[in-house]
């Protein structure tokens, strides 16, 4: 039953791309495929972090600010220590992310503050911290080492299409998460908790533990996305790095068929949701639409996905009855 949703998304993706290719023969060109593949990894990594949070009936709105704070903190450290290794950069980003995510977790699991409220609060709070850490200064291209930007600009090349290292990182995370949803006890607990928190509690699943790990993991992925942001864009400003990103992440998770009320969803769906949003983004430029149309198209996509979901659900309940 669950496969249907992903199949539907794949059909939508294929139809969309065929239509674009018919309209504009150059759409399926190495350059466009490159740009689809470049746009996606950041979104994918953050969405994989958001996925267990939403399955567990929560939401992490602060992820854009976590991304910003991780990117800026790492950038500031790079100013004084330009020789940090790649691994060290990712570790720093991940640490920043975990700490911020755990603060969210503490507020929600132990402070019993509703997730929407807590993470809207930390969204503002972390954004403020971003300014304080950087002193309001930008991290400009000269501070970012070439080896980091190389992750975005090079990778495995098949003929003319380059699959960037960033995308490989993103897909690796997606595969790990997909396997984990099958085999890891933690994900089972998350799904159990999301389907019915009371029943999960009676089965001995600790709600505080589930929430702490979910928000910690979401922070971790946000932090890693921050380093990928530096790599992808080559600079970062405290006001704009990751701002508004949270909504694109939530949108791609929702388009991927993860129920916002919790308890169901799949990593494959999230992956396809991210891919669809990336394709739309690139198609707009390829079809010479004004960039001004992007927001409008996003909004319409979200609404269509929602309406299709609810229509299919109504039909299912009717046929069951």
């Amino acid at each position: 039953m669950k496969i249907k949703r992903e199949l539907g998304l794949i059909v939508v993706l294929v139809i969309f791309n065929v239509l674009c290719a018919l309209k504009e023969p150059n759409y399926i060109s190495p350059r466009n495929i490159d740009s689809i593949l470049l746009w996606m990894p950041l979104l994918l990594v953050a969405a994989i972090g958001q996925f267990p949070v939403i399955v567990a009936r929560g939401i992490d709105i602060s992820v854009g600010s976590i991304l910003g704070l991780s990117a800026i903190t790492t950038g500031v450290l790079l100013k004084t220590h330009p020789n940090l290794s790649l691994l060290a950069l990712f570790v720093i980003g991940a640490l920043v992310g975990i700490i911020l995510g755990c603060i969210n977790g503490l507020l929600i699991a132990f402070g019993k503050i509703p997730a929407v409220v807590a993470t809207i609060g930390t969204l503002t709070l972390y954004r403020g911290l971003t300014f304080m850490v950087s002193g309001g200064d930008q991290i400009d291209a000269s501070t970012i080492p070439d080896k980091l930007t190389a992750l975005a600009n090079s990778g495995w090349t098949f003929k003319e299409v380059t699959v960037s290292w960033l995308l490989i990182i993103g897909i690796t995370f997606a595969i790990i998460a997909a396997c984990a949803t099958r085999f890891a006890q933690f994900y089972r607990n998350v799904f159990a908790y999301g389907s019915n928190p009371d029943a999960a509690y009676l089965r001995g699943i600790s709600p505080t533990m589930v929430q702490m790990v979910c928000y910690g993991a979401s922070g971790l992925m946000g932090g890693i996305a921050g380093i990928m942001f530096l790599s992808r864009f080559g600079n970062a400003s405290p006001s704009s790095a990751g701002s508004g990103f949270e909504l694109v992440v939530i949108a791609s998770v929702a388009i991927g068929g993860v129920k916002i009320t919790g308890g169901s969803g799949s990593v494959l769906g999230v992956f396809l949701g991210c891919l669809l949003l990336s394709c739309i983004n690139v198609a707009l430029t390829a079809l010479k639409f004004n960039a001004d149309w992007q927001q409008l198209i996003y909004g319409i996509t979200i609404l269509i996905a929602l309406i299709i979901d609810s229509a299919s659900q109504i039909r299912r309940t009717r046929s069951a009855a």
Binding site: L247, A251, Q295, I300
Partner: peptide, 22 residues
Amino acid sequence: AKLPSFLVTLGTMAMYRGVAQA
């Protein structure tokens, strides 16, 4: 349509500003 308000308004949030931008 019995859709969750969080997602509906997330969609219209992008859409309304998108119309203004377009």
